[in-house]
């Protein structure tokens, strides 16, 4: 179908379907969900917040760890970065260009190490 006719026909059928006129979900139910959302920092799963927008970001209190300044510590990724494993520079470069070649390289390395 011609693009213009496709667009017009789609719009007409969407108007007929009345999708835009559909009533929004119950305001009251939605509101209770806002109140009841998981605590800020409470994990839905693996550190991902359920409702990040509810976090209390601001406070006028002092921190309880005043002398803690980790900026000079070594930055050593742990957690799922470790589970995933990193790439060396060559792998990363090659992957951005030739994913298949790196795949073969990785398989080769695995064979050599096993």
């Amino acid at each position: 179908m011609d693009k213009r006719r496709l667009i017009a026909a789609t719009s007409v059928s969407l108007l007929a379907l009345g999708i835009l006129a559909a009533p929004p979900a119950s305001r009251a139910a939605a509101l209770e969900k806002c109140f009841g959302a998981a605590k800020a920092g409470e994990n839905a799963c693996a550190g991902v917040h359920h409702c990040a927008a509810l976090s209390d970001l601001h406070g006028c209190k002092g921190s309880s760890k005043v002398n803690y300044d980790p900026a000079d510590f070594r930055l050593v990724p742990d957690s799922t970065c470790a589970k995933l494993g990193g790439l060396d520079e060559q792998q990363a470069k090659a992957l951005l260009k030739h994913p298949r070649a790196v795949h073969a390289f990785e398989a080769q390395m695995q064979k050599r190490n096993s």
Binding site: G47, H49, A52, F73, P77, D78, S79
Partner: peptide, 15 residues
Amino acid sequence: RAQFPTVLAMLGNDA
């Protein structure tokens, strides 16, 4: 931490 939950989960708390 609230804004980057996936990065937090990837690096771990210390990193």
